[in-house]
């Protein structure tokens, strides 16, 4: 059972990072392979803030999310918005280019080594819950993931901003005609997606590690979550992330000889059975 819980926890972390991609790629239809670079940025901000400046862990995480959101908004204004109407290939190439640049900058600024992070005392240790030994940090990840999933699902499905966003994505011209400031909606949404990546990257340093190759190493995992979950579906991403997390941890635990093979198999099978993802629209 501990294996399953660990799987759920790492799935939740995966969800936390990937849900931002579900917003930018799923809702805004931008194939953003640079998503991991935003998560890496959040991770570095958190490490610097808590390690060098001595800011406590939680404020450092919030700072990381805000800083990443600001970076996302800036890059959206400068670069990403030029490619909204572009072909998928252009978006793939552009964002891969961005990943390379981000990796080079990270190596230049922080060196190729893993960045250490010290979790606060209240996140260390274990608790006993119904006969299970559960790491507090992992329980924290699960709680945060559920909170983000619920909040985002409500924000997109119920609020006025969510309605504006869905309208802007589906028919930008009509949305403009209705007086919606589509450009602003997109900036805010992109900042939201990037901020979530920064948040996930910051809390995930302990589990995933942090070094300049981070964006490429986990890129495929993030994409799997969005593709398997179904474009733009928050519950779908949640289910997919947990599925991948459990398969990954359980596979590595019980069948180490096939290892990562299992995830890709799961993904390809899922995509063949349901090409639009678990809960995809269309």
């Amino acid at each position: 059972m501990t294996v399953v819980f660990d799987g759920i926890a790492s799935g939740m972390l995966l969800f936390l990072i990937a849900v931002g991609l579900s917003v930018t790629l799923g809702l805004m239809n931008f194939v953003n392979l640079a998503h991991g670079a935003f998560a890496m940025f959040g991770g570095y901000v958190c490490v610097v803030a808590s390690g060098r400046w001595g800011i406590p862990f939680l404020p450092a995480v919030v700072l990381a999310a805000l800083a990443t959101a600001a970076l996302g908004a800036l890059l959206e204004r400068l670069l990403f918005r030029r490619l909204y109407g572009a072909s998928q290939l252009d978006q793939v190439l552009f964002s891969i280019g961005l990943v390379f640049v981000a990796m080079a900058i990270a190596r230049w600024g922080f060196g190729p080594a893993q960045q250490p992070i010290r979790l606060p005392a209240w996140l260390q240790g274990q608790v006993h819950l119904g006969g299970l030994d559960i790491g507090v940090y992992r329980a924290f990840l699960v709680g945060l993931g559920l909170a983000v999933a619920y909040g985002l699902h409500r924000a997109i499905g119920v609020t006025r901003f969510g309605a504006r966003l869905r309208a802007s994505v589906d028919k930008p011209d009509v949305a403009r005609g209705m007086g919606i400031d589509v450009d602003r909606v997109f900036v805010v949404t992109f900042a939201l997606g990037s901020g979530l990546a920064g948040l996930g990257g910051a809390v995930g340093v302990e589990l995933l590690g942090l070094d300049p190759s981070f964006p490429l190493r986990y890129l495929v995992y993030f994409l799997i979550v969005v593709a398997v979950g179904g474009s733009g579906s928050i519950p779908g991403s949640l289910i997919a992330a947990i599925l991948i997390g459990v398969c990954d941890v359980a596979g590595k635990y019980w069948m180490p000889q096939i290892g990562a093979f299992i995830i890709y198999t799961v993904m390809v099978v899922m995509l063949i059975v349901r090409p639009h993802g678990l809960l995809g629209r269309k």
């Binding site: 790629l25 194939v31 998928q88 793939v92 495929v220 994409l223 799997i224 969005v226 593709a227 474009s231 000889q257 096939i258 290892g259 990562a260 093979f261 890709y264 198999t265 993904m267 390809v268 995509l271 063949i272 090409p275 639009h276 993802g277």
Partner: peptide
């Protein structure tokens, strides 16, 4: 060829990674 767009891209990545892992193991 079954999927389009992102799905197709992901299937190509998935097949590539599966072969890599298979050769690795």
């Amino acid at each position: 060829l079954r999927g389009t767009g992102l799905t197709r891209l992901m299937v190509t990545i998935g097949i590539g990674m599966m072969l890599f892992e298979a050769a690795n193991k």
